[in-house]
Design a protein around this nucleic acid. Structure first.
Length: 456
RNA sequence: GGAGGGAUGGCAGAGUGGACGAUUGCAGCGGUCUUGAAAACCGCAGUGGGCGCAAGCUCACCGGGGGUUCGAAUCCCUCUCCCUCCGCCA
């Protein structure tokens, strides 16, 4: 969520920014109107509430006085003193109090009506705000769609060359017996596969290698989160309400399966006020990810590139606003460090405004080269969401100088996505006979295995 | 799944209809004292919203939502979460 005061104070500028993103549906006009009405109501309802508070207090005082007089009255019956004067004072007080009660009740009715409208108005604002995308950082180049993204020169290992025709993983895997597409489809339908033997082992090795690398060399703290979380967490991370079509959810209970560990990590410090000295918080988590892929129906159906279930190691940071862009660079570096260590050719992509997505203010992708399918594969997407997610999930920190709490900045980057790393490892390291050379960095995690041989 | 008990400020823990946004302790910040520190003592301290250039004024918040009442941390309903016991289970 962006800061509503930006919309209130600079609506024209906000509209321009959103136009650069290509988002035509952001309900800025509705928000402006509801926000104005909201403040009108608040002004009136608070005045009424103040009057009710004063009146109630006064009634309380009279109640005390009445009790006192009633006690005096009791005494007069035992002492035989005349009670007339006390009785008339009591009557006057009762009358005064009853009138005040009636008046105050009417105030209360009016307050209740206004409060109902206020609730409805605020609910409307909240709901509409959830549909407003994050605004681009000023450094993001303008471009209407992903074809305008900036691809930087390839880095890392050189593009592999072969003295034979390199095969794609969907041929290599089944031939070696390490990827079983048919049985995956039998179990769960299209976009599912089974990893077997050295294939399953290789994926587990890559996961463990990445987790070790980020924790040991980059100082991240490993997190094992729930794989299904409440829908409110999806709202916090910016997946809901907009991307409801991409989410798997439980039919009976309010559980949704993570589409990325980012959703759990964003909400790890939900409703907390962190200390500035705790920042930055650097987390890394391995989780499976589940996506319905309705948007990309029919695309990338071959191989393991895009499935309904895939594994990913995710990096996540909570930082101060002043340092978040340094950390974005770090995240990209940490993602590409993995590419380097696994001897994979990679390139960085800088996203233009039209391809930023909903939550990011700035985004870089990392792509690796797969020699078999002859394609650059996206294995990481590093985003600085600034305060967008922090506002939705209510994650703040107290500045070291003791000032008011401020929203943290949150950043995420894959580190990396497993299937595509698997594709590149298999395709780039294939030998003429279809066996696979295991990259050096993974051998300790593969029991020293140097070559993946065919299995039955 | 069944029965019961809970949820109060950063933490601990009082408060059962009106002077309570809330006693107290610890932790925090400032000060006195001290060569310095500790201790002791004094003081300041929550979050969010509205109005205002500001000083400030004001409203709300005792797990969430609803209700009763002139008035709710306190009474009623409901939801969520936590704890204990029983059952079942990896």
């Amino acid at each position: 969520m962006i800061d509503i005061s930006l919309i209130r104070e600079k609506p024209e500028w906000v509209r321009e920014q959103i136009a650069r993103l290509g988002d035509e549906k952001a309900p800025i006009e509705d928000i402006l109107a509801a926000d104005a009405r909201r403040r009108e109501i608040i002004l009136e309802v608070e005045d009424l509430r103040r009057r009710r508070n004063e009146s109630s207090k006064q009634i309380g005082g009279w109640m005390g006085a009445i009790k006192k007089l009633e006690n005096e009255l009791k005494l007069t019956t035992t002492t035989g003193q005349p009670a007339g004067e006390i009785e008339s004072r009591l009557n006057a007080l009762h009358q005064q109090m009853d009138e005040a009660k009636d008046d105050t009740r009417r105030l209360g009715d009016r307050i209740a009506t206004l409060e109902e409208e206020l609730r409805a108005t605020e609910a409307k604002i909240d709901e509409k705000m959830l549909w407003v995308p994050n605004l681009p950082h000023e450094s993001v180049p303008y471009g209407p769609d992903d074809s305008y993204n900036i691809a930087y020169q390839p880095q890392g290992a050189p593009l592999p060359t072969f003295d034979f025709e390199p095969k794609a993983h969907w041929d290599l895997g089944p031939a070696l017996g390490i990827i079983d597409f048919d049985r995956g489809v039998k179990l769960s339908g299209s976009r599912f596969y089974v990893l077997r033997g050295a294939g399953a082992h290789l994926q587990r090795a890559v996961i463990q290698f990445m987790l070790d690398y980020h924790t040991n060399n980059h100082g991240y703290t490993e997190i094992y989160p729930p794989f299904m979380v409440r829908s409110a967490m999806f709202v916090g991370a910016g997946q809901l309400p907009k991307f409801v079509d991409n989410i798997y959810r439980d039919a009976e209970e309010d559980y949704m399966w993570l589409g990325t560990a980012e959703i759990a990590l964003t909400n790890l410090h939900r409703d907390e006020i962190l200390e500035e000295s705790d920042l930055p918080l650097n987390y890394v988590a391995y989780t499976p990810c589940f996506r319905r892929e309705k948007m990309s129906a029919g695309r990338d159906v071959r191989g393991i590139k895009r499935g309904h279930q895939f594994d990913k190691v995710e990096m996540y940071k909570f930082t101060t606003p002043e340092t978040s862009y340094e950390h974005l660079d770090l995240l990209v570096k940490h993602a590409t460090d993995i590419c380097e260590a696994l001897e994979l050719p990679y390139r960085r992509i800088e996203m233009v405004t039209g391809d930023l997505g909903f939550a990011a203010a700035k985004k870089f992708d990392v792509e690796i080269w797969a020699a078999g399918c002859q394609e650059w594969l996206e294995v990481s997407s590093a985003s600085n969401c600034e305060a967008f997610q922090a506002r939705r999930a209510n994650v703040r920190y107290r500045p070291a100088d003791g000032g008011r709490p401020r929203h943290v900045h949150t950043l995420n980057a894959s580190g990396l996505a497993l299937p595509r790393v698997m594709i590149a490892i298999l395709e780039n390291n294939q030998l003429a006979d279809g066996r696979i050379r295991v990259p050096n960095a993974l051998r300790p995690y593969m029991g020293g295995k140097e070559i993946i041989e065919p299995i039955d």
